[in-house]
Simulated assay, not measured.
Amino acid sequence: MTEYGYFLSCEEFTPAELLEQARHAKQAGFTRLAISDHFHPWNDAQGNSPFVWSMIGALSQAVDLPVTTLVTCPTVRLHPAVTAQAAATSSVLLEGRFTFGVGTGEALNEHIHGDRWPSFEDRAAMLEEAVEVMRELFTGRLVSHQGRHYTVDNARLYTPPTAPLPIYVSGFGPNAAELAGRIGDGFVTMTPDADLVRAFHGAGGRGKPVIGGVKVCWGTDRDKAVDTVHRLWPTELLPGELAQILPTPAHFEQASELVTRQMVADAVTCGNDVNEHAKTVGAYAEAGFDEVYVGQIGPDQETFFDAYRQHVLPALRSS
Rank of each mutant, 00 (worst) to 15 (best):
2 T>D: 02
6 Y>C: 08
13 F>M: 04
16 A>S: 10
20 E>W: 10
24 H>S: 09
33 L>R: 08
38 H>V: 05
45 A>M: 00
52 V>P: 00
53 W>H: 07
58 A>H: 08
58 A>M: 15
65 L>E: 12
66 P>W: 10
74 P>Q: 13
75 T>M: 09
76 V>C: 07
81 A>Y: 14
83 T>M: 07
84 A>N: 14
87 A>P: 12
96 G>Y: 11
96 G>I: 05
98 F>Y: 15
98 F>I: 11
99 T>N: 04
101 G>C: 02
103 G>A: 10
105 G>D: 11
109 N>M: 07
111 H>G: 07
119 S>K: 09
122 D>Q: 08
124 A>L: 04
127 L>R: 07
128 E>Q: 12
128 E>D: 14
129 E>P: 05
130 A>H: 01
139 T>R: 07
140 G>E: 05
142 L>V: 10
145 H>E: 03
148 R>W: 01
149 H>V: 02
149 H>K: 06
151 T>K: 09
153 D>Y: 02
161 P>C: 09
163 A>G: 02
163 A>Q: 14
165 L>A: 05
172 F>L: 13
188 V>R: 06
190 M>V: 09
191 T>M: 14
192 P>Y: 11
194 A>Y: 01
199 A>C: 11
202 G>W: 00
202 G>V: 00
203 A>N: 03
205 G>L: 03
212 G>Q: 06
212 G>E: 03
214 V>H: 01
219 G>V: 03
219 G>M: 01
223 D>L: 04
225 A>I: 04
227 D>I: 01
232 L>C: 00
237 L>K: 03
243 A>H: 12
244 Q>D: 10
247 P>L: 13
253 E>P: 00
255 A>N: 13
258 L>I: 06
260 T>P: 10
264 V>F: 00
265 A>M: 09
269 T>H: 14
270 C>E: 08
274 V>T: 15
275 N>Q: 15
277 H>L: 13
280 T>F: 09
284 Y>C: 11
285 A>Q: 13
296 Q>V: 07
302 E>M: 09
302 E>I: 15
304 F>C: 14
312 V>N: 07
313 L>K: 02
315 A>N: 03
316 L>I: 13
